[in-house]
């Protein structure tokens, strides 16, 4: 587990949608390897029967009531977008492969 290969780095970069140069990939193989090796020390600990700490505070059931509040003015929303047509946010053509709106 402590060693990480170039293939692993490429796979992870794909998941994160990062494009890495060869030099960056090689450096990450080494750096991530070192960090993961350091992280290995956690395996010294027997954590069977220990509950994971998922949340920092032991609070439950915080909700908002179902009330409509004012939305953002569309012009204000689109004003900070890199590309828009006044109605829609624009992105390079999505070649719909049935994966969209997968929800």
């Amino acid at each position: 587990m402590s060693t990480i290969s170039k293939k692993d780095v490429d796979y992870v970069a794909g998941l994160a949608q990062l494009h890495l140069s060869d030099a960056e990939t090689n450096r990450l193989v080494e750096e991530m390897g070192t960090i993961l090796e350091y992280i290995e020390q956690l395996n010294e600990l027997d954590t069977s029967g220990v509950e994971p700490m998922m949340h920092a505070l032991e609070v439950t059931n915080i909700f908002r009531e179902d009330e409509v509040t004012p939305s953002l003015d569309r012009d204000a929303a689109l004003a900070v977008a890199p590309l828009h047509d006044g109605e829609y946010y624009l992105v390079p053509k999505i070649l719909d492969n049935g994966d969209g709106g997968s929800a």
Partner: peptide, 21 residues
């Protein structure tokens, strides 16, 4: 329970798609 996604619009032309959130 989950949140729905935005709607993509493919009919705008210009090699672009639109997103309606």
């Amino acid at each position: 329970m989950e949140e729905d996604t935005a709607r993509n619009v493919h009919t705008l032309g210009g090699g672009r798609s639109g997103v309606d959130f």
